[in-house]
Simulated scan of single mutants.
Amino acid sequence: MSIIIGEISYTNILPFFYYLDREKLSEQNCSFVPQVPAQLNQGMSTGKIDIGGISSFAYAENAENFTLLPNLSVTSYGAVNSIFLFSKTPLKELDGKKIALTTSSATSVHLLKVIVEYFHSLTVSYTMMKPDLNEMLREHDACLLIGDDAIRAKREQGHQYHCYDLGELWYQHTGLPMTFAVFAVRNATLRDHPSLVGLVYRSFVDSKLKSEAIHYQPMISDIVKTHGGEKAFWDSYFENLCNDFGHREQKGLSYFFELLAIWVIYQNK
């Protein structure tokens, strides 16, 4: 009996993992696989990973095979501060232009398409690329970066470009929060190992609550050492994220899925 836990390799997921008793979980034959969202999404869909954080879009693609874990998510009410469109021109001038998309995430890529094509009625072409700001913008007019890649690029080179926060753009158009990642378990794993799934789930919840209770300290001090940036930025970053998945967060995500369905129908006309 064992469970493989997917751990997104970005700082925004850390509150759920920072206080896990990894030794205790290891004794219960749990192991951790740290990867970017796109890799974890694939691992969950193929059964190589049993439980953990995945892109919201990946859940939608596999909803019949996954069960959502209650009250856990990475959500923003407005600016998320780690998902940016870097553009050489204002957003409204991107019609007919080329955008490079990170290969690291599915949710943010599709959210950008909804914003650009549905909200702003722009026609653009896309290229999937590894997350490297300079390489992406070498032959493209704009690029999408997420997670720590986006935070670092914004800090070091953001002043050179028009920077658009996708969480903020979504909130401006909908008035709803945007859930970028959810926690899910494969139905087969839940069926075969319900007690162990419960232990892992409670561990996620306990870590989240402890992180929130002490305002993400000393986690943030560790992040400054490993990722750089000012402590004030990271303090604000985590305080502005929502780690819950209640009615309001579910409503925002449901609306995103509705718009995606409309966008797909429009694209196939």
Rank of each mutant, 00 (worst) to 15 (best):
D141E: 10
Y201P: 09
V197N: 04
K48Y: 15
E239I: 04
A38P: 09
G52T: 12
K231P: 05
R22T: 03
R202W: 11
R22N: 00
E139W: 11
N41S: 11
D21V: 00
Y59S: 14
R152H: 13
H140E: 14
E7I: 00
K98F: 10
A38V: 10
Q217C: 00
L196V: 03
H193Q: 07
E249H: 02
F245M: 04
F17E: 02
A60F: 12
F256C: 03
V80Y: 01
Q42I: 10
E168G: 06
D206Q: 11
L72A: 11
V197M: 03
E249P: 01
G96D: 08
K269F: 14
L40H: 07
P15Q: 02
I13Q: 06
L111H: 00
P177G: 01
A58R: 14
P90F: 03
S108P: 04
R152Q: 15
S236E: 07
A106T: 07
L25T: 06
A142F: 09
E27Y: 07
V74C: 09
F180P: 08
A106R: 07
V36H: 11
R191W: 06
L25C: 08
K24Y: 01
I262Q: 04
L94Q: 04
D95N: 12
H215F: 12
A188H: 03
L85W: 02
A232Q: 04
M129A: 13
E156C: 10
L253W: 00
M1T: 04
Q160H: 14
N240Y: 06
S76Q: 02
Y59P: 12
G78D: 10
Y10M: 09
K97V: 11
V109D: 00
S121E: 14
Y59L: 09
C30M: 01
